[in-house]
Design a protein around this nucleic acid. Structure first.
Lengths: 210, 210
DNA sequence: AGTTAAACTAACTGGTTGGTTAAACTATAT
DNA sequence: ATATAGTTTAACCAACCAGTTAGTTTAACT
């Protein structure tokens, strides 16, 4: 094994650890997660985690950074091409939906994080969130100043899009588990990209358009 | 102390336990909660919890039932008086906002519950949720058949209202903790009843109205 | 005053779990 | 070959924590 494959192996091990961490943490949250379980799923000795990353908290943070760090950041960069505020808003909603579907662990992890009051949220990630909100604020203000959008509280719109998508996605296990839910709800899937994001898009645009 | 005061005392103890449980569980979730901590906050010996209620899971379930059980149920009953679908939708949004504000533990607990995929959700509570969704579905379908609302996917509208309100409320600690968030976000409060619910109401009505 | 049942408590138990350590193994450089 | 640095492992430990037990207090009833 030469230096290159060694480095590759190192990265692969770390990747396996982070992937396993994402799976376990997203399923059971920080407090519910067992380091032994993560090690087992990563097919790695527990001490390897401590060697490569550090303690449970460091692992959680690194996993958060790994998942949330680039996801939204990259997604909202699609806006560059768009011209009109309407088009930008459409892309904004779509980007968020795509990001949610591309990263299945995203919604549950954001829920855990938010439920805990962002106890383990690294500042870098908070910055990413802030950027996403800032982007939407700009779109809505631009639209309002051009007279095509009504005046709104951008963060409420943001909450409805992100919160709505997150709620929709994360409610899937609950929806499908209990017989109590009506037929029209039970037949809905887990993904948001497609019909659901189109629906959100349609509703949001109709809501803010003058 | 006669029988009545004894029963009263028993109920008081149980109440203290359930209140403490709500606080602790809503702060740190099921896995993060320590029975010792709940006992401490309830000013009760740990064994008293086991005597009155049962194990940790039973305690969690009872707490959920105590908080979620009547909250939504009662709130959506306000719809009785309303005539038009518009009016009903308005009351629906408002009821949910009021319920969220009246029960500060509601949003975080729902987040924990949803993040866990409803692992501990009692069927009774799932039924309550199903009813709330059913109610909204009826409002939207009635409006559509009367030609005043456009055709929508009711559960997506529901997700945007509930998810939006929940996200708004639960994001408060995160919003206020990090300097990164823009000024227009940082100045927003935690409560949803008032400006925020009016905004949601306005947006939702504009979104679904023909 | 004596009896009984309910409510409560201090102390303990046994399994779990985050984290450590020292030894073994791998690949490269000399 | 041997040293060295990096990586992985099995075994271990101390702290923690859900749940139990055996015993005490409180108060209703006779």
């Amino acid at each position: 094994m030469d230096t290159r494959t060694l480095i590759k192996k190192k990265h692969e091990t770390k990747r396996r650890i982070l992937d396993a961490a994402a799976t376990v943490f997203s399923n059971v949250g920080f407090a519910g997660a067992r380091v032994d379980e993560i090690a087992k799923q990563a097919r790695v000795n527990k001490a390897t985690i401590y060697y490569h990353i550090g303690d449970k908290k460091a692992l959680y943070r690194e996993m958060l950074h790994d998942i949330l760090g680039n996801a939204f950041d990259r997604s909202v960069r699609n806006l560059q091409g768009a011209q009109s505020p309407e088009e930008k808003l459409r892309i904004y909603v779509n980007s968020i939906a795509r990001t949610m579907d591309q990263h299945p662990h995203l919604a549950p992890i954001m829920l855990w994080e938010q439920a805990s009051g962002g106890e383990n949220l690294p500042e870098v990630i908070a910055q990413v969130f802030a950027n996403v909100i800032g982007t939407l604020t700009n779109i809505l203000e631009e639209g309002a100043s051009q007279g095509v959008f009504i005046k709104t509280i951008p963060f409420v719109v943001h909450s409805m899009v992100i919160g709505g998508a997150m709620f929709y996605k994360a409610s899937y296990p609950v929806r499908s588990k209990y017989a109590a839910f009506p037929e029209n709800v039970k037949k809905l899937g887990a993904g948001v990209l497609g019909d659901v994001s189109s629906e959100i898009e349609k509703l949001v645009l109709k809501a803010v358009k003058k």
